Simulated scan of single mutants.
Amino acid sequence: MHDDRSPHPFLARCAIDPAVAELRPDYRALLMVVDGLDARAASPAADRMIARAETRARELLAGAPVVELPHIAAWRDAYRAFGAKPQRTRNSLEALTRRAEGGLPRVNALTDIYNAVSVLHQIPLGGEDLARYRGPARLVRATGDEAFDTSADGADVVEHPDAGEVVWRDDAGVTCRRWNWRQGRRTALSDGTRSALFIMDALAPVDDAALSAAGDDLAEALATLGDTVTVSRTVLRAS
């Protein structure tokens, strides 16, 4: 791995732009770099976690509409703050929780585990291939000129975020639009991923202890996907 993507130097350079902090001073991000992964490994832990997550989603939605679940409601407010319409572009937690009630998608153990952790802990969670990063991860408000690799109608396309939109990016362009709505293709996880970056997003009412517990759960489950899995982590704060 190139030096600028070695876990500790990489994490030390990741940052939240002050313009984002002004929107939600309560925002925190738990960033985890996990090395030594085998995304194609069989994992009974992944199967168990998905089953638990689906049950958890049904329990939550039996008690309240999805838009009233506390952390989902907080993220809908955050989207409105930078001009997004949450009823049209749902944050990743809301989208997964809605799907989990009827059954989460199965991709591979790596993706299945982080989807399950997101639903179980009710925290938006994204995973990306660190080897495809160019420079550190930064949370910024977009100018509108940045490139975002995605697909439309089965074809690869390059889009651009709206000016002022909150995005995760590296030196090459946007890696995730609308804070935690849609991840790009360039840094997407694949069966060949060996080193992954995970980003967990927290707003009030989620506290630091709950965010840390979600990270612990993710790290423990991912440790089953290789004989030499290592985890490095840091917390970025808006305030």
Results as ranks from 00 to 15, higher is better:
residue 44 P to H: 00
residue 72 I to Q: 09
residue 160 H to T: 12
residue 194 R to T: 12
residue 211 L to Q: 07
residue 108 N to I: 11
residue 190 S to C: 11
residue 125 L to Y: 09
residue 35 D to C: 02
residue 5 R to L: 14
residue 108 N to Y: 10
residue 121 H to Y: 10
residue 191 D to C: 03
residue 178 R to H: 13
residue 10 F to H: 03
residue 118 S to N: 08
residue 65 P to C: 12
residue 119 V to M: 10
residue 120 L to A: 08
residue 118 S to Y: 13
residue 222 L to M: 14
residue 209 A to D: 10
residue 146 E to S: 03
residue 177 R to I: 10
residue 216 D to S: 13
residue 223 A to G: 12
residue 181 W to Y: 14
residue 187 T to H: 01
residue 172 A to L: 11
residue 99 R to P: 00
residue 15 A to T: 09
residue 191 D to Q: 03
residue 183 Q to D: 07
residue 57 A to T: 03
residue 155 A to H: 13
residue 220 E to P: 04
residue 169 R to N: 01
residue 91 N to L: 04
residue 187 T to P: 05
residue 23 L to M: 01
residue 226 G to N: 03
residue 27 Y to L: 15
residue 239 S to Y: 10
residue 148 F to Y: 13
residue 183 Q to F: 13
residue 211 L to I: 09
residue 151 S to V: 15
residue 98 R to W: 12
residue 3 D to K: 08
residue 32 M to N: 00
residue 82 F to L: 08
residue 7 P to I: 02
residue 235 V to I: 13
residue 43 S to F: 09
residue 9 P to D: 01
residue 214 A to P: 03
residue 106 R to M: 04
residue 84 A to W: 02
residue 90 R to V: 07
residue 111 T to A: 11
residue 29 A to W: 11
residue 129 D to L: 10
residue 220 E to V: 10
residue 86 P to G: 14
